[in-house]
Design a protein around this nucleic acid. Structure first.
Lengths: 339, 339
DNA sequence: ATTCGCAACGAAAACGGTTTCGTGTTAATA
DNA sequence: TATTAACACGAAACCGTTTTCGTTGCGAAT
């Protein structure tokens, strides 16, 4: 086991000072050509790599980005991570991923773990429990320490920082309008509790579309589930007791599950009933029939988040100017709606 | 913006030495009750947290685990990450996730980035390109430096380290046997190229099951796809030109996609043709019909990997003893096979 | 009065780099 | 010949901790 070689080792071996070695490896003008060549050759031979930790301590910059998300086993979030990684790695940053598991406490603990020097900034999406409690002191503390934060998707107005979201209201509006345009009148909505910023916005978009097209919003056609568990029982009851010719769901699981219910009840999709979901994941693509969805562009969201964060991290300026980027959702038409 | 307070700050403010502060905060016996109380109160008031980076430099331990996987947008790998996170976080470790994107070069780069002090050990699954090239020098270098490595799922015998896999051969065997027991005779296999360790093992299990039950292995019933892309064209051709009453697929996407093809051709599942896939993900659960699968227990795999790694990291011993844990796969019966 | 022991604290090295500011040597200039 | 500037390099501080090894001051024992 040959352990890592340090500047000190090289200096001792070549009988020069540590500073000379350091400068030589950075190709400093101060050092003579001969010495530089000798040192560089030696370093290459022994495969010298500077110790990241030491550099971090000196620079007070770690080149690590902390990502805290509610759930890692969720297609949307993984695409966001992919986007973050793509952009961050290209700029020499590593990504430290922590999942809050929708728990407020775990979110706080993870942030505290990372905030003590491990990372240069945070990219995060709020745990549902956090949105429910409406307590953002952990976020405020971090920003007050000067650690940049970018919030995506599940955001809050309570904390001042950069934000990236898609226009959820518009997305739901587009989906509902699509169904209305195809002559659907009895459009149901399966969503989650309103404390989730995204669900609230989507419900608004749904209402807006119906109202604007002179359709009454029938509250019995709206099912609000707790976000945590996919309650099959409730969906089943709802589906069987509600007359609908179209259903909008705030995620693909609700949609695909309900489609199956419909099919078992002898309904044809999309002839008798059509479906639109949110999140353009594998489930939508490979469902039978494939599911029309509002794509949230997770990867793009991740890239933009990373870009915004790294910009803040690397900017010397102390400007306290924050922006919110709103991405446009896209309707991906598949076989669960007509043509 | 109040930036982080350090030991030095406390020492200056309270007119004691840095060492006294450090000891007081660790409740050392050396320091008088009075002084300790004063220092601890001050630290609490100003919310002092030790700087992780400084501690890492001192201890030569980062409490970070590096995870390098082929793809982050993949259910199996995310469940593994979840398992790693769960175990690691409980022990105070952070998880740095890097995706190789199935690329050898990215795998090498990521490992080099992390190996220079950022992490205490690696948990990884090989990129398909790496398995194809059969080049593991980057892994060997890392282990020679004394950095522990745990390989999971996509492993190689070329490098000596701890390993965690499921018994892929057994899994495929179980699946094929299940179909045979139900009277299926013309069992197809949709898999990926043999250089992927798991695909090879699964193919072997499939062959073994057929042979043992006096069924001839018809090579024309085996489709080998490049792992990278899900080639719909090829699957379609294969499906339509091959007579089968059962299909075993090495992942859920292949299975679900092929099920849809079958249904469009008017076949009933599972009456006319039955399906079994690998990976127990959302796709299998919410497919219509739901898909019988060989569960790979990703989360468990992650937990075990993390446990093995942390054990190595924290053990002083220089023992060069490595083990390979083989998990038993489970057959999860759903509606794509008979009862 | 001297020595001893102990309690309570500080100085300094160490981790592995970067960087500023000397300093000694040589060669060019006055 | 004395001065000076450029060159090439080293010493040391610094980042924030931990930890070892002093070093005080003081009461007790001799």
């Amino acid at each position: 086991m040959k352990s890592k070689i340090t500047l000190k080792d090289i200096a001792r071996e070549l009988e020069v000072s540590i500073s000379t070695v350091s400068k030589a490896l950075k190709n400093s003008e101060e050092i003579s050509r001969d010495t530089k060549e000798k040192i560089q050759a030696f370093a290459k031979l022994y495969n010298y790599r500077p110790n990241n930790i030491a550099i971090s301590l000196k620079n007070k910059r770690t080149k690590n980005i902390g990502v805290v998300i509610p759930d890692i086993v969720h297609h949307f979030f993984t695409t966001v991570i992919r986007g973050i990684e793509k952009y961050a790695n290209a700029r020499g940053y590593n990504v430290i991923v922590c999942s809050s598991d929708e728990s407020f406490d775990r979110e706080v603990i993870n942030m505290e773990m990372l905030a003590n020097g491990s990372i240069d900034g945070f990219i995060m999406s709020l745990a549902s429990e956090t949105q429910q409690k409406n307590d953002y002191n952990h976020l405020k503390e971090v920003t007050e320490q000067g650690i940049p934060v970018v919030l995506f998707d599940r955001i809050t107005n309570e904390v001042e920082c950069d934000k990236v979201i898609i226009d959820d209201q518009l997305g739901a509006y587009m989906a509902a309008k699509k169904m209305i345009d195809q002559g659907r009148k009895k459009i149901g909505l399966i969503t989650t509790a309103d404390y989730l910023s995204v669900s609230k916005a989507r419900t608004q978009g749904y209402r807006k579309a119906l109202t604007e097209h002179n359709l009454e919003v029938d509250e019995s056609r709206i099912l609000k589930l707790s976000s945590m568990d996919m309650d099959e029982e409730l969906i089943q009851q709802f589906f069987e007791s509600t007359e609908m010719d179209a259903v909008l769901c705030v995620n693909e699981i609700f949609a695909v599950y309900t489609m199956r219910l419909a099919q078992r009840n002898g309904l044809r999709i999309p002839e008798d009933i059509s479906f639109i979901g949110f999140t353009d994941g594998f489930l939508s693509e490979y469902a039978n029939p494939s599911l029309t969805v509002i794509a949230q562009h997770g990867q793009k969201m991740g890239e933009i988040s990373a870009q915004m964060l790294i910009e803040k991290v690397e900017s010397e300026a102390e400007e306290e100017t924050y922006q919110t980027k709103i991405l446009e959702p896209t309707l991906v038409v598949r076989d669960s709606t007509i043509n």
